[in-house]
Design a protein around this nucleic acid. Structure first.
Lengths: 203, 203
DNA sequence: GTCTATATCGTGATAGAC
DNA sequence: GTCTATCACGATATAGAC
C-alpha cells in the first residue's frame, strides 16, 4: 500500500507548517498534523524523529524566508529612493500573503546562545549591505542626513509587521472589514516610503 | 495554617502573570505557577476555577494596560507636535520595562466575534480621539498634510513594538549587547517623532 | 513504508483529610 | 484555607505485524 514514492514526507511537512504557524509549538498536537496531512500518526515519527525535530526544520526554513527576503532586497543594485519603495512594496506583499509568519518567528525565544543565528550567518548582514553603503554615499553627497541603517530597516519592518500581527485589534479599533484592512495595507505602501524619505531628506 | 489573609490569591496572580507572559498559555503549566507563587497546586484551583479563567483575567488586565496607555496619551491636551514626542517617549519606556507584553497580547488570536473587544470599548477609540481632531485642525490650517490617524498611530506603535519583540534578532544582526540595545531604543525616541513630523509637514 | 496497539508520562482538576 | 493523594485524560513515542 505504498503511497506514491515518499511524498508523504512532503505532505507531512506542509501540514506541519500550516498547523505550527497557526498554533505554535505547544499549541500543536502531533495528531492534528497527522490528520491535516492525511497520514497515520506513526508516519510522522518515521520520517521525523520527534515533534521537536519536525518543528525545528520548519522554524529554520521559515526564519530564512522571513529574513532572506530582507537581505535580498537591501542588497539589490537600485538607487536608494527606488529601493526604499521596492522594499516596502515587496515585503508588504509578502506579509499580506503570509500573515502568520512574523508571529511564528517572533514567538519562539531562542536562547541557545546565538547558535541558531550563527548557522544562518545573519550577523553583520546590514553592516555589509549595499543599503548601508548607499546611505553613507548619499550622506557624503549631502543629499540626506546621517542615519543608522538598522534604525531605518527596523522602522520599515515594524511599520509593516505590526499591523499584520495586530490585524484583529487594528481592524476592530478602526472599524475595518477584511477589504478595508487590505486597503489599509495598500495605503501603507505609499506612506512608509514617503515617511522614510521625508525623514532622510531633512539635513 | 492560614497564610496572612488571602494574599495567596495575589501571589498566584503575580506569579501567573510572569509565567504566562514568558511562556504563553499552552507553554505554561499549572505546577509552574504554583511553584513560582510558592503555593500548592490545589490552591490555584481553589481561587480560580480553571487555568483558562486564570489566564483570561490576566489577559484582560494586560490588554487594557497595553492599549490603555495609548488611549490616554492620544487624548491628552498637548499640542500636536509635543504630543507625538510624548507618545513615543512614554510608550517606549513602557515597552522597555514590559518587553513581554506585546508578544503576549498579540500571540492570542481572539476569535470570539469581537466580544472581547466590545467589553473593553475600544471601537472608534481613535475616531473619537483628540489626536484625530488635532490632525484635522492642523490640516485645515495648512500646517500639515491630510492623513489617516490610524496609519500614524500604527507606524508609531509598530516602530516601537517590533524591535522589542525581535530584540534577539535585532541585537544579533546589529551586533548589540544589552547596553547597545537600550541605546538603540533611546535613539528611537528621537528618530520616530522626527520621522512622523517630517512626513506630516510635507504638503 | 504503513498500519494497529500500547507503553509511558505529564497534564488539569478534584476529593477529602485537617 | 491549605494540604496530600489521586483520578481521568491526552500527549509523544515506539514496538511489532503486515
Amino acid at each position: 500500500m505504498a503511497e506514491e514514492k515518499q511524498d508523504a514526507e512532503i505532505k507531512i511537512k506542509e501540514a506541519a507548517r500550516r498547523v505550527f504557524l497557526a498554533q505554535g509549538y505547544e499549541g500543536t498536537k502531533m495528531r492534528q498534523i497527522a490528520e491535516a496531512a492525511g497520514v497515520n500518526l506513526a508516519m510522522i515519527n518515521y520520517y521525523f524523529r520527534s515533534k521537536e525535530q519536525l518543528f525545528n526544520s520548519i522554524y529554520a526554513e521559515t526564519f530564512s524566508q522571513f529574513i532572506g527576503q530582507v537581505v535580498q532586497l537591501i542588497n539589490e543594485s537600485t538607487p536608494l529612493e527606488v529601493k526604499v519603495w521596492k522594499i516596502v512594496d515587496r515585503y508588504c506583499d509578502f506579509l499580506v500573503e503570509n500573515p502568520l509568519v512574523p508571529g511564528f518567528i517572533l514567538s519562539k525565544q531562542r536562547v541557545d546562545g546565538g547558535e541558531f543565528f550563527k548557522k544562518l550567518d545573519v550577523r553583520g548582514v546590514i553592516e555589509n549591505s549595499v543599503f548601508k553603503k548607499q546611505l553613507a554615499e548619499e550622506t557624503e553627497k549631502g543629499n540626506i542626513r546621517s542615519t543608522d541603517p538598522l534604525q531605518v530597516i527596523t522602522v520599515i519592518l515594524g511599520s509593516l509587521v505590526f499591523p499584520i500581527m495586530a490585524q484583529q485589534v487594528v481592524s476592530y479599533v478602526g472599524g475595518l472589514d477584511n477589504k478595508g484592512f487590505r486597503e489599509f495595507m495598500e495605503e501603507r505602501k505609499q506612506i512608509i516610503p514617503e515617511m522614510i524619505m521625508a525623514y532622510l531628506k531633512v539635513k
